[in-house]
Design a protein around this nucleic acid. Structure first.
Lengths: 97, 97
DNA sequence: AAATCTGATACCATCGTTGGTATGTCTTGA
DNA sequence: TCAAGACATACCAACGATGGTATCAGATTT
């Protein structure tokens, strides 16, 4: 084997993963957007009010709620704080089999 | 009130939030890095092997595990897939009081 | 009808993460 | 001692999210 062999051997398998991950992240972004919109409306806040509380722009809130972008963790933290909520990010092993 | 009033009124309160959120995100990044390193070593994988599986570079893995950067959700998804794990991101309301 | 508020979209500048590469150090093994 | 592997760090280019602003459509109110 020429190169490291790992790069080659796993390359094919990895190709799918990146796409799969991108799709999963997009779905996550969409769901988070929906949840934030629900929490915001629950409190009767406008996008402008939430943007002021989080230091974000109103367009950023709109994009995020629509699932147009995948939010960063710092942004999610700011939103959590605005809602007096807790941000939880976990990597949970599926099966131990 | 001159401008929208929201921008002004909440501005002071928001200042702390941004810093607080940045700190929280950094801590989250650190903990995630530790967890990923643990999961990786648990499987006897080198950073190079994990980088091949996730389509990331070895330096990116090193930075991430050291907590040097705050990972993006797509990256976390790729890592989760490599570990055959599930990525969970939740905004949980604290008290309902 | 006019004014106002809300949410959505577009454009551009900026910032942070990441990719890619090279390099350095340390450890292990031949 | 030398070679190879593993991890860390540095530098730069590319990409995506965000900030800021302006604008637009729809709904509400006067």
């Amino acid at each position: 084997m020429a190169t490291t062999s790992w790069d080659d051997v796993k390359a094919a398998r990895m190709g799918d993963s990146v796409v799969e991950a991108a799709y999963a992240a997009a779905q996550l972004a969409f769901e988070l957007g929906e949840q934030v919109r629900a929490m915001r409306e629950e409190r009767g806040w406008s996008q402008r009010e939430l943007s002021a509380l989080t230091g974000m722009s109103q367009p950023a809130i709109a994009r995020f709620e629509a699932g147009g972008t995948t939010p960063t963790l710092p942004i999610l933290e700011r939103i959590a704080i605005a809602f007096d909520a807790t941000l939880s990010v976990q990597l949970k092993s599926k099966a131990v089999a």
